[in-house]
């Protein structure tokens, strides 16, 4: 379990004019171990979705390296290796209404990728693969010939998941896969993602703003704020012993389904502290990283009584 599947080094993604860029992701580094789920949380505009999209190559990175299974993704030149990489890394999108082609049947959507990669010998095998994928995500054979509009939101997201699984990937980036779904359906999809992870030994980068869901599904969590990872650590650690004031503020804002606790809750506002150029990632506790200057860190650690 301690084998690094993915390593991101100094990932930087700027948009707009080079003279006055919007720094969507501003030099972040992290790694994901094989078989684990790394949760990436933050507010809208924090750069969490951009991070996912840059890793999989939907944007051309401004700077940095992505190393997958020991290989630098952006240095791969041969077509064959590139294809192989694309099989390994897949994505589940946020909006199940926008991410499925309305003019293709569920079967076509799922099989498109293995048509391209030529992963079957004959029609019969192709058919069987589609059915087994549909069944893996809790749908069945009859759904194969239906169009996206004939499905509910939760079912559509299942098709999106089946498509991501179609090439037998080892790593899946899930970009807010449940935020467009109803509460009871969210739980179904999260349970499904967990089952699939166990069955297929998948590694997830789970991007979301819903902290309680992220905490539930993740082994480790990275908190993003304005293009930087401000805190990264074990899920339990981050939730029970946050160090960075932004993490504390974010946690204090999560509403809990309990009226008595809610009445007592005190929200901690976050006052942004200027981080000077000397700010960097620190590791005050084993495997618990916090971004800030030395002074800030000392202060925060005192506040956290550590």
């Amino acid at each position: 379990m301690n084998h690094k599947l993915l390593e991101v080094k100094n990932l930087t993604q700027y948009f707009g004019s080079p003279s006055n860029p919007i720094k969507a992701v501003d030099g972040i580094s992290f790694h994901i171990f094989e078989g684990e789920t790394l949760g990436l949380v933050g507010e809208s505009g924090s750069g969490k979705s951009t991070t996912g999209r840059s890793i999989i190559g939907l944007y051309n990175m401004t700077d940095g390296e992505v190393i997958f299974k020991g290989k630098n993704v952006h240095k791969i030149k041969s077509k064959k290796e590139q294809k192989q990489l694309k099989r390994e890394m897949q994505m589940i999108f946020q909006d199940p209404y926008a991410s499925l082609n309305p003019r293709m049947t569920a079967g076509e959507i799922i099989s498109e990728a293995f048509d391209i990669h030529g992963l079957y010998k004959n029609k019969k095998e192709r058919q069987e693969r589609i059915v087994s994928l549909l069944e893996a995500v809790g749908l069945n054979r009859e759904h194969m010939t239906r169009y996206p509009h004939e499905f509910s939101g939760g079912q559509r997201q299942r098709i999106g998941i089946a498509r991501a699984l179609s090439l037998n990937p080892s790593f899946i980036i899930a970009d807010e896969p449940i935020s467009a779904l109803d509460v009871s359906i969210q739980a179904q999809v999260v349970n499904l993602l967990k089952e699939l992870q166990e069955e297929r030994n998948l590694t997830y980068l789970f991007i979301a703003h819903d902290l309680s869901m992220v905490k539930y599904i993740s082994d480790r969590i990275a908190v993003m704020y304005r293009g930087k990872i401000v805190e990264l650590g074990d899920a339990e650690e981050i939730y029970h012993h946050p160090i960075h004031p932004y993490t504390k503020s974010l946690l204090s804002a999560v509403p809990l389904p309990d009226p008595i606790l809610e009445r007592k809750r005190k929200r901690i506002p976050y006052v942004q502290e200027e981080t000077s150029d000397f700010a960097s990632m620190h590791e005050p506790l084993p495997n618990h990283f916090v971004y800030g200057t030395d002074e800030q860190l000392n202060k925060w650690l005192k506040q956290a009584q550590l």
């Binding site: 939760g154 509460v183 009871s184 739980a187 179904q188 967990k194 309680s212 539930y216 999560v254 809990l256």
Partner: peptide
């Protein structure tokens, strides 16, 4: 079902969410 399908910050991640089946 609604209460169960919402994880809270203390849910152990090895226990399954109490999801409502179907739609």
């Amino acid at each position: 079902g609604l209460l169960g399908s919402m994880p809270d910050l203390n849910n152990k991640s090895d226990e399954k969410l109490f999801a409502i089946p179907g739609s």
